[in-house]
């Protein structure tokens, strides 16, 4: 069925720019063929103008990575179109599972002792201490109801707005995404003071030169609201 009256691909102008809406009922092959034709036909529309950003909306069609690449390639060939995003309402069970995991808080009641590594997707809530030599890793935030005396790694998949929160903050090392904090070595500083007195959290500050800073826990809500706008 090659004659489809050109209904599979619609180009729409919106506030955000151009959106290419793809039919989600036909076969992918038919869709791609029509997209190619349409782009050829509309070549003039794109040719001389400035570069346009387009958003592709695949509706309720599941797009594999390679399908997504094929679509992007067809559009990018025109030279003046740049694909900003390929959107689909559908994801695999696996992807959905990942989204759920990332949004969960796993709570653990134990002391994370020397040599132990506790690693979770999402946020971790530890009721207990993290002792020197113990490591906690989360793709999201880390909350310790107790003393953090070991190593905490938050945002391990790149989330730089993640935080590490502890009732007693005496970490040996903290990392948030790729920003690090190291406690001073004993020979550098005799007194092993907490990074902050009382309950606190660690977060990433700075634009060009990123660093980890500490703040009192009562300010955490303020911080989380401020980063949710960016």
């Amino acid at each position: 069925m090659t004659n489809n009256n050109g209904n599979y691909v619609t180009i729409k102008g919106t506030k955000e720019g151009l959106t290419i809406v793809l039919n989600d009922q036909c076969s992918f092959h038919e869709l791609l063929e029509e997209l190619k034709k349409k782009i050829e036909r509309e070549q003039r529309l794109f040719e001389n103008g400035p570069q346009v950003e387009v958003r592709v909306d695949a509706g309720n069609r599941y797009l594999s990575k390679s399908h997504e690449e094929e679509i992007t390639e067809v559009l990018n060939k025109t030279g003046s179109v740049r694909v900003h995003e390929v959107h689909s309402n559908v994801m695999t069970k696996g992807e959905a599972q990942e989204v759920i995991e990332k949004a969960t808080v796993t709570s653990v009641t134990q002391i994370v002792r020397s040599g132990q590594v506790l690693r979770k997707t999402g946020d971790i809530l530890i009721i207990g201490d993290v002792n020197p030599g113990g490591v906690v890793e989360a793709t999201g935030n880390i909350y310790v109801i107790g003393a953090l005396k070991g190593i905490a790694r938050a945002g391990t998949e790149g989330e730089s707005h993640a935080v590490v929160c502890a009732s007693v903050m005496i970490p040996k090392q903290i990392s948030i995404s790729d920003t690090y904090f190291y406690a001073p070595e004993k020979h550098e500083k005799q007194e092993q003071k907490p990074a902050i007195e009382g309950p606190g959290y660690a977060y990433v500050t700075g634009e060009e030169y990123k660093a980890i800073a500490f703040e009192e826990t009562k300010m955490l809500g303020h911080y989380l609201r401020s980063v949710s706008y960016t």
Binding site: R113, S114, G115, Q116, N131, G133, G134
Partner: peptide, 16 residues
């Protein structure tokens, strides 16, 4: 001392 306590902690973790 720090080193012995670190190792004792490791052992307690393994005993758990």
């Amino acid at each position: 001392d720090t080193a012995a306590v670190r190792d004792a902690d490791r052992i307690i973790g393994l005993l758990e």
